[in-house]
């Protein structure tokens, strides 16, 4: 199919982009990497009258350390997450996650900001933002807003972003001593959106968790920061503690049904991920049950 006719403007600055969005409002769409927007336009699922391309804005691209915070520009590509040494040392979870986003060609174009703005509940990066305690930096007609990742995602393809807003950056606390991460997802094929996935960030205290943040994705209409994690922190890990946490997780999740999985299957896979995550982070193979493939 062919996209419906649209007007196109290449923004010359963030201010220029904001002006264009202010003028065109609901009729406009920001174009970043285009890996979600363009397919949707070609299928005529969306038909914006104006496309505001932010691809040329160098000010939106890049990864930088500011004190104890890591700053990622909204137009930073998924591929950059895989090669950046700052990512590898400060938030390695993002590099682990980025490897699972689609395929190289898509990662070369798709952007971090685009993925968060798209807010696909099966996407890797939104769940990572929850696990990492990210702050999403947004600029709109009323100036700059800084929104906690936990508040940013509101539903399927829905966020706190209004039509006139531009997501400009992400701020992440730099991983400190004792921190560890785990990332795994179950997808039918390499590069597919996950059936269920887990992005976890932990602080270890000897053989126990001092802190554990579990960002689940593809388990409902938005990424979930699992409360069940609380049951696993500050305790001696046993298989019964883990099983209780798994049951709590099952109760807490409200997964959707689609062609890949029933809610029961998603709950089951979420529990499997929990066990694998704990076993891996605490280096306790005894907690990892069943075969692997």
């Amino acid at each position: 199919m062919k996209a419906a006719a649209f007007a196109y403007t290449r923004a010359t600055s963030v201010d220029n982009a904001l002006e264009l969005l202010a003028v065109h409002g609901e009729r406009a769409r920001v174009l970043s990497g285009g890996q979600s927007l363009i397919p949707a336009m070609n299928l005529r699922l969306v038909a914006p009258e104006m496309v505001v391309d932010i691809g040329a804005l160098a000010e939106l691209r890049g990864i930088a350390i500011r004190g104890d915070t890591l700053l990622i520009g909204a137009a930073t590509r998924h591929a950059d997450l895989l090669t950046s040494s700052d990512i590898a040392t400060c938030v390695p979870l993002l590099a682990a996650a980025a490897a699972h986003i689609a395929h190289p060609a898509i990662r070369n174009r798709g952007t971090v900001g685009g993925s968060l703005a798209q807010a696909d509940p099966a996407s890797e990066l939104p769940a990572c933002m929850l696990a990492l305690g990210a702050t999403i930096v947004v600029r709109g007609p009323g100036g700059e807003r800084r929104i906690a990742a936990e508040d940013f995602f509101t539903g399927i393809y829905e966020t706190q972003l209004a039509a006139q807003d531009l997501l400009v950056a992400i701020e992440l606390p730099i991983a400190g001593k004792g921190s560890a991460h785990f990332f795994q997802e179950f997808a039918r094929r390499h590069g597919d959106y996950a059936i269920t996935g887990l992005a976890a960030q932990a602080v270890l205290d000897g053989a126990a968790f001092a802190d554990l943040r579990l960002g689940y994705f593809a388990v409902g209409d938005k990424p979930v920061l699992a409360k069940a994690a609380a049951r696993l922190t500050g305790v001696t890990m046993t298989s019964s503690v883990l099983a209780e946490a798994g049951d709590a997780l099952s109760r807490e999740l409200d997964p959707h049904e689609d062609q890949e999985a029933t809610p029961a299957m998603r709950r089951h896979l979420a529990k499997v991920l929990l066990a694998r995550c704990v076993a891996s982070l605490l280096n306790r193979p005894d907690l990892h049950t069943g075969g692997q493939a």
Binding site: F186, M265, L269, V272, T289, G290, G291, Q292, A293
Partner: peptide, 11 residues
Amino acid sequence: VEVDTETGFVK
């Protein structure tokens, strides 16, 4: 083939 009996995935 290998079957992950926890996840149902076939390799």
